[in-house]
Amino acid sequence: MKILTTVKRVTDPDMKVRIQPDQSGIVTEGVEYKMNSFDEYGVEEAITLKEAHGGEVVVVSIGPGAATKELRTAMAMGADRAILVETDADLDSDAVARVLAEVVGREEPDVIIMGKQAVDSDRSQTPQILGSYLNWPQATFAYKVEIEDGWAVVGREVDGGTATKRIKLPGIISADLRLNEPRYASLPGIMKAKRKPLETLTPDDLGVDIAPKVKVLNYEAPEERGAGEMVDDVDDLINRLKDEARVI
């Protein structure tokens, strides 16, 4: 089975982001980058499926040259080879999906495993748009994946509970956080990853125009919520809720 998985290089999710004074973007000096959290789950699932069913895991990133670091991390975890589609442009999800559709056309994987959302742009669109472009079925927000007879049976986290869907492969799965426990890259894994193939392409090589459909005009900080007051005890709390906030 050939498995394609995607990783986005994002700012460290535990870091406080600051905005440029001219609102043109976020401050990038001193910022740490890492693999998008949800993609760690996606890569882990891809490797687990390969371990169970055999085949190959190809990991793809679209972004700056520095994203080779996240691709090497995925290969250190166990992916077999990597493709970087290099660009410094700001991409919307639709452009990423258009690039991925071309990569899929070349690679012809049986299944694509992605993260459910990039934790920087918080859009949660790319897997679904790609599904539509390829006309493949999708199972988003996966917490459980089983492959049987050319179908994937996927448990999904949805409002109101959980849902189970079967999709015939080729298909697309997007990972939620409960899907698995991503492994750490071992030292031998890291050494091996250095020699694994990493192909670099450009959107032009793939014949994709990456012009966005959605343009960001400016970045602002949200209104800060000031810290309130500490109360002495439960009685004090009840009195404040009743008399000050008037919410009970």
Partner: peptide, 19 residues
């Protein structure tokens, strides 16, 4: 024009949809 939060609500952007 639409406003939307991102970066776990630490940033708000204003966006223009060109289509």
């Amino acid at each position: 024009k639409f406003r939307r939060p991102l970066w776990a609500g630490n940033v708000i952007t204003t966006v223009d949809v060109l289509t």
